[in-house]
Design a protein around this nucleic acid. Structure first.
Lengths: 204, 204
DNA sequence: CCCGAAGTTGGTCAAGTGTCCCAGACACAT
DNA sequence: ATGTGTCTGGGACACTTGACCAACTTCGGG
């Protein structure tokens, strides 16, 4: 095994653990499965990290941190109106899920696991705060790109958007019905579009 | 232990297993925890059911079958308009979640578990089909109660409603922010209400 | 009343788990 | 070169888990 600092090894273990969780689920993420994925001997595990739960915490934080760089905002440029923009963005997200179902399922599993683990109970709140903040950034950017203004607080709309993406994802994971998911997105876009008004609307 | 037929015992074990899953999570639903919950000796387990995975299948089916009797439709009577009706219904659902968070979390966990288990992969689709059917029934009933007509197919609207309830539940489970969840529901109600029109609207 | 079938139960096993240990190898400053 | 703290990695321990068994008790029909 190449020599590696304990902290580097810990990071490598977290990445390996995420790979295992995506592929086989949280319950399969044993210490042995993780070190096998990382190509390390078992002994390295507890040299690099005090306990398995602490590594899982790293994994959740890895997930939370790495979810932000979404290129969704770029899509806004092509959209012709708010409904179109919302539909395109949600569709892009669905494509992302379809391309790597295990990844999104891993997010849900990790959230549920954290909720059941005393030491990790604060993580889901942080995780969702980041999701909400990300959605808020996209919505704010959309105002400039589309020349519109949201008629309700962006923070509240952001939470609703995250709610819809989570719901669409869960539903699709359950029945893998692409067409139905698309229709749900169309409907959601139509439902959310009225919250936008032209930026210079004289009625305000 | 009272004498009991093997099939009755199997049903009792499935109920006990559900109780354990609600309280402690899927990973805690070991054969020993289940028989302890059911007040049975360990030996009874494999007399009544061939394997643990087969009992988990029973549990998922129990969940799928027993979710339908919601009394949500009754709330429609008091509502003054579609937005109010939707808000009341979603709020009632949120109350249901808040009263027994473990229960709804168990639903999610069981769905994820089924998706990861080869023998159970067909169950989530069935589970969500039932959710969608239930939502469709409520939406159809709402038409008569409120004297309105949905301007989009009920089946599609039903899937969106389930999407929203799932998303709201997941978000609330993560951060337990009652106020934020309430506002999300308010917003969702406002967004969905325009899909209703007076039943005798002359513009159609 | 008897007897085979059905049900009960504590004990046991092999596999798998998280955690820990320690003897050795390595890198680097002195 | 030598020493010191860091890293390696095979092995072990205590424990849990799902599964199984064999002896025992109870039931219901002939």
């Amino acid at each position: 095994m190449a020599r590696m600092s304990a902290s580097d090894r810990r990071a490598a273990l977290a990445r390996a653990a995420l790979t295992v969780v995506e592929r086989d689920g949280v319950h399969a993420a044993t210490t042995r499965a993780i070190v096998a994925e990382a190509g390390m001997p078992l002994g390295s595990f507890h040299y690099a990290v005090p306990s398995r739960d602490e590594l899982l915490r790293d994994v959740v934080e890895l997930v939370v941190a790495g979810e932000g760089d979404a290129a969704f905002a770029a899509l806004l440029a092509d959209a012709v109106d708010p409904a179109d923009a919302i539909r395109r963005t949600l569709t892009a997200y669905l494509e992302h899920v379809r391309a790597a179902p295990g990844r999104e399922q891993a997010m849900f599993e990790l959230t549920q696991y954290a909720l059941r683990t005393a030491d990790l109970q604060d993580l889901p709140a942080e995780q969702y705060a980041r999701y909400h903040a990300l959605a808020a950034r996209i919505l704010t950017a959309a105002q400039a790109h589309l020349g519109i203004r949201w008629t309700v607080p962006v923070a509240e709309l952001a939470r609703l958007v995250v709610t819809v993406t989570d719901g669409v994802t869960l539903g699709w994971l359950a029945d893998r019905d692409d067409a139905a998911a698309e229709r749900t997105i169309d409907l959601a876009a139509a439902a959310l579009a009225p919250f936008a008004e032209p930026a210079s609307d004289p009625t305000n």
